[in-house]
Design a protein around this nucleic acid. Structure first.
Lengths: 149, 149
DNA sequence: GTTACTGCAAACTTTTTGCACGACA
DNA sequence: TGTCGTGCAAAAAGTTTGCAGTAAC
């Protein structure tokens, strides 16, 4: 499957899941969904707002937040607590993250590239582990090259 | 080394590092450092403020934030972006986290309990990886037992 | 006696919420 | 047409900053 159709499929999946729950498919929601579906990095609410505003100039940041909350509540996207502002990850399937400690950008690492991590009994004693994510923190190439300070 | 002397050693290490940089050892800073050194969970700025206030009733939340920032800037503690408010991890040595998706509490998992994770070439291509942390997300026992909603 | 640190207050940022109007089904 | 969703504005919550007085060295 090529990238374009993968995006379209994800877009449709998001829309269907909301419709199935009786949510109305408004112009604004559709554009937020479209923006998320095509995202490769991990946009913040403000990034999405800025991008969607080019096509729907009147959309408010509140609506973006509400749509993101609706998707996150259904497990269709994941909210990542990042320094400064939360970021949203439209790719829920198992994968890992490279986080730049300077600029906060989050890049995906394919799960296949990282050896699987077993849940130790010490963790099971604390509670139920739903998923395991490896976070590799460091300096991205842009920042190492002396990006914006 | 028992727990009490480990705490004292950490406390001294924090204080020495700040003094070495020419920062003054005020009553307030010392108490914030003391609180961090003895912390086993991962307190937020407000937790520390509340705890220190019992001994220094006039300390302000600003001062707590400033001390935490000074320590974090020197790599003596780590700031963890958590949902709601940032938390601070006084244990910089390699270890992993169990994060409760409901209440946001963060528990340590000893590095020895989790198989080491190798940095794949895909990550090295994005930048320089400084450290690797495994995050096990799930529901802690308290929340599973129907804790505060 | 300097200089840095503190506390206060206010500013700022991110996110949430109440309300009246407008749009989807 | 009825209800849900939107935009606006204001409110919360967390964090940072400017300033004048205070304390460390």
């Amino acid at each position: 499957m090529d990238r374009a159709s993968a995006i379209q499929q994800r877009e449709r999946a998001f829309a269907e899941a909301l419709k199935a729950d009786g949510l109305r498919m408004t112009h604004q929601r559709l554009e937020v969904i479209r923006e998320l579906a095509r995202a490769t990095h991990h946009p913040g609410a403000d990034d999405i707002h800025r991008a969607v505003r080019e096509r729907v100039p009147t959309i408010s940041l509140d609506t973006v937040y509400r749509t993101l909350a609706a998707l996150a509540a259904r497990g269709l996207i994941e909210r990542i607590a990042a320094p400064g502002a939360a970021r949203f990850d439209p790719n829920v399937s198992g994968h890992h993250h490279f986080v730049c400690m300077r600029c906060g950008r989050v890049e995906d690492l394919d799960a296949g590239d990282v050896a699987p991590v077993a849940v130790p009994p010490e963790a099971a004693r604390l509670g139920t582990v739903t998923f395991v994510r490896v976070e590799m923190t460091g300096l991205c190439n842009d920042c190492a090259a002396g990006g914006p300070h």
